[in-house]
């Protein structure tokens, strides 16, 4: 449906915006390496079913997300490493990994290796942006391009919510993927503050600056 496709396009756009920023400005300043590393873990643990993906659409996106995220990690860890300030990126990711691991082991859809990793990736994605938002809070402001990246990334999961409602209404099975929905709502809520500042400042041509 339209919400789902728009969400995935927004996700893809966010990655292109981030890559554009890093390559064009030859700098990854303002970007949390920890959040980016968490996203790599998210893609790898979620797409373990890559060889059995029935839909070519999903298959292509999975390849795109894993490969582009590997490239982002390479750029941040190798090519533009000096532009990355670890002193600003101090969020304790152990808590996020622990949170996702506990929920994944306690409430997977089924007790299979793939399902536990899938649930882990869903919970981890829901909170993976926290190191980035924490960094933003420490610096108090962000480049416009970084704000656009975060807006596109947040919009992706927000658009999945109307997609789930649409699917629930239109599909005869009325199936709800509880883990994905609860984690997806949590993920969107974490962005709400950012969305508000983006709307009140960046969309009106001002600099992204925290009050």
């Amino acid at each position: 449906n339209l919400f789902r496709v728009a969400g995935d396009m927004s996700h893809l756009a966010s990655i292109f915006i981030l890559l554009h920023k890093i390559v064009q400005l030859k700098s990854c300043s303002g970007i949390s390496f920890k959040s980016q590393l968490l996203y790599l873990i998210v893609y790898i643990t979620r797409y373990l079913d890559l060889p059995w993906t029935p839909s070519p659409y999903n298959f292509i996106f999975k390849i795109l997300f894993i490969s582009s995220q590997l490239y982002i990690i390479y750029l941040m860890a190798r090519a533009y490493r000096p532009t990355n300030d670890p002193n600003l990126d101090t969020f304790r990711v152990e808590y996020l990994l622990g949170f996702a691991a506990v929920l994944a082991v306690l409430f997977p859809v089924r007790y299979t290796v793939l399902e536990i990793f899938w649930a882990f990736s869903i919970w981890l994605e829901s909170v993976a942006i926290l190191p980035q938002l924490f960094m933003l809070q420490r610096t108090g402001e962000a480049e416009a391009i970084t704000a656009h990246y975060l807006f596109a990334l947040g919009t992706y999961r927000a658009l999945y919510i109307p997609n789930w409602i649409y699917r629930y209404v239109t599909e005869p099975t009325h199936k709800i993927d509880t883990i994905a929905v609860v984690a997806g709502v949590l993920q969107t809520v974490l962005y709400s503050d950012f969305f508000w500042i983006y709307y009140t400042k960046v969309m009106k041509g001002e600099k992204f600056k925290l009050p």
Binding site: D49, T112, D177
Partner: peptide, 10 residues
């Protein structure tokens, strides 16, 4: 070890 809950979203 394959799960089969059929997650069809990204």
């Amino acid at each position: 070890w394959r799960g089969d809950a059929g997650h069809d979203e990204l």
